[in-house]
Design a protein around this nucleic acid. Structure first.
Lengths: 175, 175
DNA sequence: AGTAGTGTAAAACGATCATTTTACATCGTC
DNA sequence: GACGATGTAAAATGATCGTTTTACACTACT
């Protein structure tokens, strides 16, 4: 594992576990097992590091979004939450912690959400032969976000409930 | 407006706008218009201040939860998000920023969510004459959380979509 | 053999963090 | 008219913040 990969994955873990602002560079340095000089050579700054962590997170999460059905979408989310974490959406957390004041971070967050919504629109169009109202895609998106948030305090079962609700709405749109 | 009320409401605003960790005590002092000595006399510590802000937030939000129908629940959420903020759930944000490591904060967050879920269970029981599966209440909760999260980047219209989805699920459970 | 690249360890930078302290002013109340 | 409560202004606390710097070691290529 090369230096930059090690840095980004250590940073992702710490940011997810303790928050962005609360995670100091000294903690990052220790966790990544490198000197501060090396860290800054690769990351540039803390803001840039956060941005790169989000972009890497998106890359890693991508396969869980790029699926062909609502069932696969929620199955993938359930798998992610069971194996990775149930600490809420890291993108929205980054946005909240920075107040939307740092353009690079805001951009990474909005790009991720735009891709998620686009994909859900595609899936819904396919599953309903384009007959569903545009509202349905937003409702599936909301169930997706809601499952991610509710899983924080209700556990991965929340994703199962959301999955069933999404299936019901889809079934209703088809008839 | 007495000193403590002024402090808590200034703190709530700053925490919501810029995040908890990123908001320094100097900013709080200026925004609340008081000396650091007075602030600490009333708040005790930053952690205690965050806890009190969350408790006050819950008190202020309470009327939006304590309603008699799913319709009223989502109408109240829509009104809150349109008039207050669309920055996500302040409780979950506090939990995320502190990593769940500060017991007083974690407790305030979980108490709020427990109250929300309890109330939704009550509402669902009333609206379905107790005939709905226990899952339905969790699904309404998920739509509620999802609307709050999605409103950050899709605006208050997300609440309208969630409202319609909740009505549809409820209608389906009744038939 | 020499050099560019990539790394480490550790100190230092000034700024900012949450918190405490010192010294003083303004109250309403007994 | 003294007193306790409640406030202000401002300096000082020591720790921690993100970042830069100085000095040195290892490795790979020409």
């Amino acid at each position: 594992m090369d230096t930059k990969t090690k840095l980004i994955s250590a940073a992702e873990q710490l940011f997810d576990r303790h928050g962005f602002t609360a995670t100091g560079m000294d903690k990052l340095i220790k966790a990544a097992g490198m000197s501060s000089r090396t860290l800054y050579k690769h990351a540039g700054s803390k803001t840039a590091l956060i941005t790169e962590v989000l972009k890497e997170r998106h890359r890693r999460f991508q396969p869980h979004i790029e699926v062909g059905s609502v069932d696969a979408l929620f199955d993938a989310l359930e798998e992610w939450i069971r194996s990775e974490s149930a600490r809420g959406c890291l993108f929205l957390r980054a946005y909240g912690e920075t107040g939307g004041d740092i353009p690079a971070i805001t951009e990474a967050v909005l790009a991720h959400k735009a891709r998620l919504y686009d994909k859900i629109q595609d899936i819904v169009a396919i599953e309903t032969d384009g007959q569903a109202m545009p509202e349905l895609a937003e409702q599936i998106l909301i169930l997706y976000e809601g499952a991610t948030a509710a899983a924080i305090y209700r556990g991965p079962e929340a994703v199962v409930s959301a999955h069933k609700a999404a299936s019901a709405l889809l079934q209703q749109a088809r008839s």
